[in-house]
């Protein structure tokens, strides 16, 4: 199984990822999932989520999950996963996953399983960034800053 794992502070460029997709002639399903930051957390409005990872362990755990996925769904040809770290604004993607397989059944099942397992074992944490107060006064720069 081909695999790509990327933990990055850069925005997820989904069109570029889709354009780079490679599928063998026997593959009939390419499904992708984008996890996008919502505008509220626990009922309170937020402007972003700050993601933190224990990077070495996160990569190790992801690759263990990829190995397990390949064993459970041996027909999956390709798996790509990108996870944002750092501050991700509302409406931006924090996660992108793509599974390529011969049929949709195993592609959907593998993708669902991978995301569920990620949320159980991969050491990534999030901290909501509250909205700035609306109408807050902004002080003009001091004279000697001009």
């Amino acid at each position: 199984m081909k695999r790509l794992l990327l933990l990055t502070t850069d925005p997820i460029d989904e069109p570029a990822l889709v354009a780079a997709r490679q599928m063998g002639a026997g593959m009939g399903a390419a499904i992708s999932f984008s996890g996008v930051v919502r505008g509220s957390e626990a009922g309170a409005p937020i402007s972003a989520i700050a993601y933190e990872a224990f990077g070495a362990m996160a990569e190790h755990q992801f690759h263990q999950l990829f190995d397990q996925l390949a064993a459970r769904w041996p027909t999956v040809e390709s798996l790509r996963l990108v996870h944002r770290l750092g501050v991700v604004k509302v409406n931006e993607a924090s996660l992108w996953v793509e599974v390529v397989a011969p049929h949709r059944g195993e592609a959907f099942a593998a993708c669902q399983w991978l995301i569920d397992e990620m949320k159980r074992v991969v050491p990534i944490w999030k901290k909501p960034v509250p909205n700035e107060p609306v109408g807050r006064a902004v002080s003009p720069p001091a004279r000697d800053e001009f």
Binding site: A58, V122, I124, W125
Partner: peptide, 29 residues
Amino acid sequence: IAVGVDYQRADYPLQPGDEVSLFPPVQGG
């Protein structure tokens, strides 16, 4: 609890120099 990059249980025997990580439930995605 992890030792290095692998999860371990409370009865895991530690070795000198081990790097242990403690953290709350994970929240990726």
